[in-house]
Design a protein around this nucleic acid. Structure first.
Lengths: 202, 202
DNA sequence: CGGCCGCAGTTGCCAGTGTCAAGTTGCTGG
DNA sequence: CCAGCAACTTGACACTGGCAACTGCGGCCG
């Protein structure tokens, strides 16, 4: 997300990045409710008030991590859409990318979902989030153009996003390590099939 | 969910119920992260350790409230399906009932969604939750019988649940008080249309 | 009818938390 | 070389969840 800058900016090296990383790790380990500013500071090897200096308060730090998560999602979307010409295949690939990102960055995803404790009005957060949604919108417009000009793009986008998001949350809740990610990929294939059938009708 | 029992069981009257109610109210006001055992106790007019006596710890109380929420959902499902013969109409009504329940009991719903801080292995919680899912499964079996015998019921159920749940979460996040509930009903109508089209195909 | 046992609820304590204010450290530009 | 400022630390305060020990009331058994 952020490469180490050439001119080491201050004492620690890059404390903000270290704090974001520690937060993601901690949330991945103990869940959002196990997060604490002081524990993050401890893991980064700094004093308990250091995080506040960079992120204001706990909501600020979590919001930054959530924004990073949407950043990851955006790059995953871009990679998934790369060179895929068929709009349906692209939508399918994006769905898989979404779920895969949730599994690859459970800490980030956990924070992104804990609506209450992040600041949705934060600029870079909402920018990243809207960019992801805009990418989905465009993918669905492409599906509309290819499949059914009467498709209500807004409704389909909300439906698709809700579905993938809900599915990712439910899948992360259950223990899907056993079944593995390819089982989820298969599920996404089924969902895409069902959705596209619905979108194509009439 | 629980009528006041005729024989007042102990000092307070019915402290557990009062604590559940206070919890739901508090979460509705301040969100799950604004919840605190002590504030709940304060609102119920008891000492700060009283909740622990009935619910063990904070996770215990929140789990009980989440279980209540699923109870509400079950009664809403039952009421929505009552006397509706067409399986598609029934599924549609259930979707609306889900969203409406989320809006009518935002405290309960907020707790139900905060996966991290409730105990998913709790008996009555998982019982209520599975009952709700089973109701959905049956509704989808009815759709399959009416519309497409080849429909994969499990996949369709996961898809439907994910969709409605995701939609409810996203709708609660946004400020949909302006648009009103009938706008959401309309959205559910659209979604049902799209889903049924998908389910009916081939 | 009386004593006692148990449960509902309380009080007090401890470690830990977020946040704020005031201090300290060390790089940087003039 | 030194002033200033950004990056951090230290210390304090109010609050939290959880535990242990306490009180007091009701019902039950003798």
């Amino acid at each position: 997300m952020k490469e180490s800058s050439t001119k080491t900016p201050y004492h620690h090296g890059d404390l903000p990045s270290a704090l974001r990383a520690a937060t993601a790790e901690l949330v991945a380990e103990r869940g959002p409710s196990g997060f604490s500013l002081r524990e993050v500071a401890r893991r980064a090897g700094v004093s308990h008030a250091a995080p506040a200096h960079h992120f204001g308060d706990s909501k600020g730090l979590l919001t930054a991590v959530a924004a990073d998560g949407f950043g990851q999602l955006n790059t995953a979307f871009a990679a998934a859409g790369e060179g895929v010409d068929d709009p349906i295949e692209r939508l399918n690939a994006m769905g898989k990318a979404y779920v895969r990102t949730a599994f690859d960055f459970p800490g980030h995803f956990g924070v992104m979902c804990s609506g209450d404790l992040i600041d949705h009005d934060n600029e870079t957060f909402s920018h990243n989030a809207e960019r992801a949604y805009e990418t989905l919108l465009q993918a669905i417009r492409d599906v509309r153009d290819a499949v059914n000009p009467n498709l209500d793009v807004d409704a389909a986008a909300t439906l698709t996003w809700s579905m993938v998001h809900g599915f990712a949350v439910l899948s992360l809740g259950a223990d899907n390590k056993v079944d593995g990610i390819e089982h989820l990929d298969h599920r996404i294939d089924q969902f895409t099939q069902l959705l596209i059938n619905g979108y194509a009708a009439r």
